[in-house]
Simulated assay, not measured.
Amino acid sequence: MRWGRLLLALVWAMAIYLASAQPGGQVGLSSPWDKFAHAAAFGVLAWLLRTGGLPLAASLGLTALYALSDEFHQLYVPGRQADLLDWLADVAGAMISLGIDPGSDPAIRNKGPRM
């Protein structure tokens, strides 16, 4: 384990929490730019977890769960709302930063029709 990276991941997660606790009128990003911000923020979190020594699946799973909790948290912030598309952007950013290409898995790719 690389404890310094995991500590940075914790600090980054707290920064995400503080940013998502801002009331809706103070955010300032409109669609689609907010999706890029979501992808970048959670991509960094996933990368910090992975380079901190967590397995790939754990890095992606923890990031996706934290993103889900972030969306739930926003239900209670004035002017904010939970959004499935935001969560999908979070997970996509994590997958990109971890280099996960769903189409590259041989088990998936070889399921096509045989000729």
Rank of each mutant, 00 (worst) to 15 (best):
W3N: 08
G4Y: 13
G4V: 09
R5M: 12
R5L: 12
L6F: 07
L8V: 11
A9S: 05
L10F: 09
A15E: 02
A15L: 11
A15H: 02
I16V: 09
L18C: 02
A19S: 08
S20H: 07
S20C: 04
A21T: 07
P23G: 10
G24P: 05
G24N: 05
S30T: 15
S31R: 08
W33M: 04
K35Q: 14
A40Q: 11
A40V: 15
F42P: 03
G43Y: 03
A46T: 00
W47Y: 06
L49P: 00
G53P: 05
G53M: 05
S59Q: 01
S59P: 01
G61W: 05
L62I: 13
A64F: 05
L65S: 10
Y66F: 15
A67H: 01
L68R: 09
S69Q: 09
E71D: 15
Q74V: 08
L75V: 01
Y76W: 15
Y76Q: 07
R80T: 14
Q81R: 14
W87Q: 07
L88W: 13
V91I: 14
A92Y: 03
G93C: 08
G93N: 04
M95H: 04
I96K: 03
G99T: 03
I100C: 02
D101Y: 12
P102Y: 12
A107F: 14
I108K: 01
I108Y: 14
N110D: 13
N110P: 03
G112R: 12
P113N: 04
P113Y: 10
M115T: 01
